[in-house]
Design a protein around this nucleic acid. Structure first.
Lengths: 88, 88
DNA sequence: ACGATACAACGCATATATGCGTTATTCTGA
DNA sequence: TCAGAATAACGCATATATGCGTTGTATCGT
């Protein structure tokens, strides 16, 4: 039975998203940014990311992707792994 | 002029996604997994992620989120930063 | 008081990550 | 050679990350 998905109705649930982890990441990013005395706007400009997205990340509203982490790391002159170096 | 977005037509472009970086990440994840002699299916089960998603990540087809990295790290008994510890 | 600066919060668009199933292909050991 | 295991690849659904603009709020120096 190919293409069974077309005929079966099921409820989609994203199980992976982890709010406590993305909040911890946002807090950590804010610490890295403020320690380097950068404003959100300056970081946004360096990383070529909209400032609104920087805000959402720091407030822990979004489940950031590794490409974004890479862009932020370059803007902060850090290795990407530094951005994940925090405790939950 | 509030809600200007409603009236202005503009083309949306995702500038952040970085295919070479997500490919390098996938290759690195595959190395971590095979070094521990785990099949994709075993890793998928431990991390509670669909096996098809593990495959897509390792083939560098998707821009993985930090929640997924966290889940994979737990399943691999590594700190999340280990998953970003690679060269592009 | 007031203008400037920083950040929060919203509104809405598109692209895509994930979930979950199936089918196709490749690898591997007896 | 060939059956089973592992992986690739596909199909399609929903949730959401991002892009880009605006408005709201707080702080601060003057």
């Amino acid at each position: 039975m190919y293409r069974l998905c077309e005929y079966i109705h099921f409820r989609y649930v994203n199980k992976i998203r982890d709010n406590s982890y993305i909040k911890a990441f946002g807090y950590h990013l804010r610490e890295l940014r403020t320690k380097k005395e950068l404003s959100q706007e300056e970081l946004a400009y360096s990383a070529d990311i909209p400032i609104s997205q920087i805000g959402r990340i720091e407030r822990g509203e979004v489940n950031t992707t590794i490409s974004t982490i890479n862009a932020l790391a370059k803007a902060l002159n850090d290795h990407p792994k530094v951005l994940l170096d925090f405790k939950v």
